[in-house]
Design a protein around this nucleic acid. Sequence first.
DNA 1: TGCAAACCATAAC
DNA 2: GTTATGGTTTGCA
Length: 197
Amino acid sequence: MIQVYSRNFNDLWFGLAIGNQQVYGTSFGESEQKVLGSLLNSLPFNVSFQVFSEPSAYAKDLFAFLADIYEGKNVNFNFPLSIERLPAYTQRVLNATMAIPVGYVTSYGSIAKAVGGGPRAVGNIMANNTFAPIVPCHRVVKSDLMLGGYGGGLKVKYQLLSRERRGYASDDIIEVDSWKMHVFPVEFALKKFDSFF
DNA sequence: TGCAAACCATAAC
DNA sequence: GTTATGGTTTGCA
């Protein structure tokens, strides 16, 4: 049985699906309906679920954690995600994405080069990310450091990244499980949009 | 710049 | 099995 919760912080809705001591999905957005919709959509078809109006203590912790990420804070992740039900390649991409530190972005192609596959495949997985914003798909941009796309809209992507500015000056190589991933200061990507938004 | 073709894992048929 | 679908990338004019 999966428990589903929704909660509002500062005019923004967060959604949460928990079961088996694991997080099955998270989401956020402007309306409760959208948030619950995308969340339920991502659940495995063969499991039952129940929607609760009051969050459990564990759910409250998780909501606070989601809000912290949304606000651009540095957080330590210690909630288990149920990603083993996803295809192996998808898992690799999600893990690589989670390894992008706050303050940096990487590109679809850079992830593809690190874990195998192609940039479009990575883009597809970002588009279907069921763990936003825990899996920080907003930190993945195009190879020319234009923003690329975002499920919640480009403005939201810009704002999320904007709060993650840490003032890093140069690009870097991140190592994850023997993969090497090229990352760039988030400012590099924001620069091109500062006047736009 | 701008466009076409290559790219590649998934989900849906 | 096969096909359609992208939050892409690269090369070439």
